[in-house]
Write a protein that binds this DNA or RNA. Structure first.
Lengths: 144, 144
DNA sequence: CGGTATCCACTTAGATACTG
DNA sequence: CAGTATCTAAGTGGATACCG
């Protein structure tokens, strides 16, 4: 298996992914599972979580202040909050050094790395399709 | 290429995905691109967008009220709002029938389908790892 | 440096009522 | 049925100040 060895999705590939997911993970197997998954997605699918995941995935290990620099626009409060939640969910590993001044390093856990791998296609999609989205917006706004 | 023919990610696969993304889409090519992508991700990575995308990906075409039934917990207002934004971004196609009572059908556009394909691994990750996350939370909460 | 705590402005989202 | 409009409660997030 290759997670990703070519960026774009052809119509056939989309259809195949759909068939695959429907076959192995039918949405109606167990409504409780379905709702649990919804709950999980709701938890991870927020602005900052995804961006931090992306950053740590790209950069590896970062100190708190370096992370703040990379994640443009985030406040210290939200960075702390989001990192705590990700740590609690087992996605992020926090390593503190007992020195002065304090030093804290963040990195993705093995679980976090697998989530990063799963998100890889989404990031690539974003890179490749941001023109298409911009165009769609212009069209939509033009004849609204 | 197979988008997905086996669920789990091994360490090697994670490493390969990472190398791939870093090589073809280095995070430092163009800071403007990077920030645009961040902006896009921020836009799509909200609770309802992802769940609606998931639902339409699984179900194909749905009427407004069917969508409301599938997406448990969403208010009519948020459903309308999110669908409008997704339509504006070119992800969703809205088809209205001039009849009484009114009938409106929503489905994913070709662009939306490719985003769904990109998200496929994330959904599968959520299905497969929700136990791991629950366990991580218990551990974290236990010795806090 | 890497936080925590408090306060406050702003946004968001649910409930409700109404419409084509 | 598929919305829109309005109001309001609750949550979010930024600024600031302070601590280990």
């Amino acid at each position: 298996m290759t997670i990703q060895n070519r960026p774009a999705f052809t119509t056939e590939e989309v259809a195949r992914a759909q068939t695959y997911k429907a076959r192995d993970y039918p949405s109606n197997v167990d409504p409780r599972i379905e709702s649990l998954v919804r709950e999980m997605i709701s938890g991870f699918a927020d602005k900052w979580t995804v961006v931090i995941l992306d950053t740590l995935w790209d950069e590896g290990t970062l100190r708190f202040s370096d992370l703040a620099r990379h994640v443009t626009g985030i406040s210290q409060k939200m960075l702390t909050q989001t990192l705590r939640r990700m740590e609690r969910d087992g996605l992020v590993v926090r390593k503190t050094y007992a020195c002065v001044p304090p030093k804290v390093e963040y990195s993705l856990s093995p679980l976090g790395l697998t989530l990063g791998a799963a998100f890889c296609n989404v990031w690539i999609w974003a890179i490749e399709n941001h023109d298409a989205v911009a165009a769609a917006r212009t069209t939509f706004d033009g004849d609204e």
